[in-house]
């Protein structure tokens, strides 16, 4: 569930244009094996919905029905928030003070593992993230704590994702040197050598921003 929420929040800046054909997405276009996607039309804009329906009918004509069952490579936009955020009075008082301090840290969770990062840090994930290419921006929306020099906002267990914006850029994929392990049983000459070489996705934390109180409280009511 967590991974899905991360995948959903991938490249939120791309979401408005995701209704267009894949040629309009420079980052996504570099993903070689991208297929034509069926994306639901946003209801508010007429032009975009027209474009999207055109694209979906084209997709129906060109793509075989078998291929439509393949999992989407471009994630759906996250569901809008239905409930307004309930902030404690002390949080309302302290959050502007936290935001006013010069540097911030965040304990962002990816696959339930915490990464204590500041803006500009490099994170080597312990896995190879599928479906991303270098240059993509991920929005990390799960954090257990958020702080500056004198203030820390702790989540119970997680901080509400409307409070902050943390974006990470995919820098590429790195591998480790080949590992070899010799497997030897007693009283037997045979030695089995096992080789392994894992790949890791590298992220760079591009932005940590703490939203202002008006934005936080407005986000629940407007949608």
């Amino acid at each position: 569930m967590l991974s899905r929420s991360i995948r959903r929040s991938i490249l939120d800046s791309r979401i408005p244009t995701s209704a267009l054909p894949p040629t309009f997405l420079p980052n996504r276009a570099r993903y070689f094996n991208s297929t034509v996607q069926h994306v639901d039309a946003p209801a508010e804009s007429l032009d975009a919905s027209l474009l999207a329906t055109n694209a979906s009918t084209e997709a129906l004509e060109t793509v075989a029905p078998v291929r439509r069952t393949i999992r989407q490579k471009v994630p759906l936009p996250p569901a809008p928030f239905t409930q307004p955020i309930a902030l404690d009075a002390s949080v309302k008082e302290m959050l502007p003070l936290l935001a006013a301090q010069p540097s911030h840290y965040i304990s962002a969770h990816i696959h339930a593992k915490p990464y204590l990062v500041t803006a500009g840090d490099t994170v080597r994930l312990p896995f190879h993230m599928p479906g991303v290419v270098p240059g993509d921006i991920l929005r990390l929306n799960r954090a257990s704590s958020l702080g500056s020099r004198d203030y820390t906002l702790k989540g119970t267990p997680y901080v509400d994702e409307r409070v902050f914006e943390c974006r990470a850029r995919v820098m590429g994929t790195e591998a480790e040197p080949m590992r070899t392990k010799e497997k030897k049983k007693r009283r037997n000459r045979r030695i089995n050598t096992v080789k392994s070489k894992h790949k890791f996705t590298i992220l760079k934390i591009a932005e940590i921003k703490i939203n202002s109180l008006e934005d936080i409280e407005g986000s629940g009511e407007s949608v």
Binding site: T118, D121, R124, P126, E174, E176, I202
Partner: peptide, 18 residues
């Protein structure tokens, strides 16, 4: 996707200059 560096074993996930 590679960054051109020689492959290294990295044990700490986060690297920071701040």
């Amino acid at each position: 996707d590679a960054n051109g560096e020689k492959l290294k074993k990295v044990t700490k996930p986060v690297k920071s200059i701040n």
